[in-house]
Design a protein around this nucleic acid. Structure first.
Lengths: 265, 265
DNA sequence: TAGTGGTCTAGACCACTGC
DNA sequence: CAGTGGTCTAGACCACTAG
């Protein structure tokens, strides 16, 4: 029987136990986690129903549910009304997270900057662009190219090429300057929801015409970002390539240990 | 009185209401959210205590707490035992997260790479280093400098300088090659827990001796990372500076929309 | 010390699942 | 239809905070 798999719990419910400093629901959660890790409840198997856990731990349903809630919050189990509790993971997953309160925060540009659009045209995907935006060679996209500027300096911050699906072109065609990120505009006006954003960051050098526009020497170092924005169905509806000359921009991120960290008792 | 700020709730508790399809705790949560957005409870202000919310909504404490739990989960309020409930955010920020299952994943180097240590010495922080590692000028750190290599290519992947607090020097002194990240070693052998990691990414150029070691032309573009590792008390115990020549390395991250998305009723 | 949120019990009814 | 998890009530004691 499933219950045999649970550890003895004599100490668990004992209020004299030293470990009692921690709430009962937490000790129950840890005990269940231990059982899961032990393989008593392998991934894919079912946990005993709440009532049985109540009997086993001598706790009320509320307390047992708090324990199960903890496991749910840490991505270890799935619960379905009527069906029961399934083990989803044996390890309390991701330990570090980088959290943005909004996607435009990902861009990291100060508020007082704006885009100066210099190129607006339909383009056909060539092999290099295909690698960047992940769209097959030959497909058509609408491209907006321009410089990002700040009022505080004559030097442009970066060159950016924005590629969007042709259907969204009317939203931005004809704009010469803009404060609002294009993806935000698409989200707002067309109800597209960004579910996912992919970012690649690498070093490159600035050559020729681009060097002149960015006012740097030919072959100067640059920080290049390629970003892809995907909607809920996984469709890539916008991609951007931005090229930042040395010393004009820097990207920073801060990772925090997730709550799931301190698990072991 | 604070309670005056709450909307009338006649329909909220009415079981005949059509909206009753949704659980009471959820309707209460939405009502509170509406009040917060309205400015009835500005960011920084306090929400009424649970007991008062119970009276107002005619619900049990359990139900009110479920509502408050919802607000907590969505990053809208902060709760402190004894102190009360504070409004933290007015908008359930559509947040995006980047999750790592471990910190070494942050390094993004393939498994088959290793460090070849060429320099090991105590250093005094100069102004430039101070900006990088965030330690006052004059402080002493232990430095390990070297190349990261892969067996698959003669070209080194990057140059890395690792700065650690002198107390951890014995852990790594004398090593000539290493697979394990230094922070991981410190975590494992000294029980230091990394709570936070800060990363800065920018473009730079490779000059002089470094160019020779990395086998690139003088002034070649590079992707530079500065990383700081902080423990639970906020102490910076390790910082690294890594310099990647063009085309040998690229950093990628993928952001996902957080569950907090679908809020509005 | 009065009032807060955190934990917990012992009940209850319901919606949903799978047999 | 029996059994599951989801919601909810009406109590209780406790740890903690702030005046």
């Amino acid at each position: 029987m499933a219950m045999n798999k649970l550890h003895t719990n004599a100490t668990l419910a004992d209020p004299e136990d030293l470990a009692s400093a921690e709430p009962l629901y937490y000790r129950i959660a840890q005990d269940l986690l231990r059982s899961i890790r032990n393989g008593d409840y392998p991934v894919g198997s079912m946990l005993p129903p709440e009532v049985r856990l109540c009997e086993h731990y001598g706790a009320s349903r509320f307390t047992v549910r708090e324990a199960l809630r903890w496991l749910t919050d840490h991505n270890l189990i799935d619960r379905r009304r009527g069906a029961g509790t399934t083990v989803k993971n044996a390890e309390p997953a991701p330990s570090f997270i980088y959290r943005l309160s909004s996607l435009s925060e990902m861009l990291k540009y100060p508020e007082d900057t704006y885009r100066e659009n210099l190129v607006s045209t339909m383009v056909q995907v060539d092999p290099r662009l295909s690698d960047y935006i992940g769209s097959p060679v030959g497909h058509e996209w609408y491209r907006i190219g321009g410089l990002r500027r700040s009022d505080r300096s004559d030097l442009p911050i970066c060159w950016s090429d924005i590629y969007i699906l042709p259907e969204f072109a009317p939203l931005v065609a004809g704009e010469t300057t803009s404060n609002e990120p294009v993806f935000q505009r698409i989200e707002r006006e067309r109800g597209v929801v960004i579910a996912n954003a992919q970012i690649r960051i690498f070093a490159s050098s600035i050559e020729g015409e681009l060097a002149r526009l960015l006012r740097v020497a030919d072959g100067s170092p640059a920080l290049t970002f390629v970003r892809r924005y995907l909607d809920e169905s996984g469709r890539n509806f916008e991609s951007t390539v931005t090229i930042h000359p040395e010393k004009r921009f820097e990207y920073a991120l801060e990772l925090h240990r997730d709550g799931a960290g301190g698990l072991q008792t």
